[in-house]
Simulated assay, not measured.
Amino acid sequence: MLHNKFSRKWLSLAAASLALTACDPAPVDTIDPPLAGATIGGDFALTGSDGATVNWADFAGQYRIVYFGFTYCPDICPTDVQRFSQGLAKFEQAAPELGTKITPIFISVDPERDTPEIVGQFIANFHPRLVGLTGTPEQIEDAARKFAVFYSRGDDTPGGGYLVDHSAVVYLFGPDGEPIAILPTDQGADAVAAELAQWVS
């Protein structure tokens, strides 16, 4: 499935970058983020769980955790969202003032089923400040392209449902919308909190 294929690609890139910087005696604040200069992210107009239009520019000045998934996902999506939510909560406990500078965002890749109401029910299970977004197929396609996320309708499941294959990457963006790093949700909440501590200031 695309989940693992693209996740490994991006995580390998991040790991390689971090491995190189770990050997560099330069101060942390002079190290370039793993995704520095990458053309990831950009303007979008999507629909929030309250039905209001939400734009990328609405988060200006905030660090942003961004994840694309779908609410009917049986395992990968809820696990990833739980881990970055728990990692953010740990970071908030350790650095409350810095924690408030981060907005976590979940964007659906299943506009056919993920209505604002359904997305709202999904995000209520995780971080209290998690923003849930959906939109039309065209809006989701545009946002996914800008954020280098790949997705497609997958196999049908018993009962008439279906899965959505997608790249499962948890991005961290800076206050100006610049890509910073990929959060290591595969390593658990503590690793996510440590990664946030490295870049959020």
Score class of each variant (00 low, 15 high):
Arg64Trp: 05
Arg64His: 04
Arg64Thr: 05
Arg64Leu: 03
Ile65Pro: 02
Val66Trp: 02
Val66Glu: 00
Tyr67Asn: 03
Tyr67Val: 05
Phe70Pro: 05
Phe70Ile: 09
Thr71Ala: 11
Pro74Asp: 10
Asp75Asn: 13
Asp75Ile: 14
Ile76Trp: 11
Ile76Gly: 05
Cys77Asp: 08
Cys77Phe: 07
Cys77Ser: 06
Pro78Phe: 14
Thr79Met: 07
Asp80Lys: 15
Gln82Met: 15
Arg83Ile: 10
Arg83Asn: 11
Arg83Gln: 08
Phe84Asp: 05
Phe84Tyr: 07
Phe84Gln: 05
Ser85His: 06
Ser85Pro: 07
Gln86Val: 03
Gln86Gly: 03
Leu88Tyr: 06
Ala89Met: 13
Lys90Gly: 05
Lys90Cys: 01
Lys90Ile: 01
Phe91Tyr: 14
Phe91Ser: 07
Glu92His: 09
Glu92Cys: 14
Glu92Ile: 12
Glu92Ala: 09
Glu92Trp: 11
Glu92Pro: 15
Gln93Phe: 13
Gln93Asp: 13
Ala94Asp: 02
Ala95Lys: 02
Ala95Met: 01
Pro96Glu: 03
Glu97Leu: 13
Glu97Arg: 12
Leu98Asp: 12
Gly99Lys: 08
Thr100Tyr: 06
Thr100Trp: 11
Lys101Phe: 07
Lys101Ile: 09
Ile102Lys: 09
Ile102Phe: 06
Thr103Tyr: 10
Pro104Met: 04
Pro104Phe: 02
Pro104Trp: 01
Pro104Gly: 03
Ile105Ser: 01
Ile105Phe: 00
Ile105Cys: 02
Phe106Thr: 04
Ile107Gln: 01
Ser108Phe: 00
Glu112Met: 15
Arg113Glu: 12
Asp114Lys: 06
Thr115Trp: 03
Pro116Gly: 03
Pro116Arg: 04
Pro116Leu: 03
Ile118Met: 09
Val119Met: 00
Val119Lys: 00
Gly120Phe: 04
Gly120Cys: 10
Gly120Tyr: 08
Gln121Thr: 14
Gln121His: 15
Gln121Val: 10
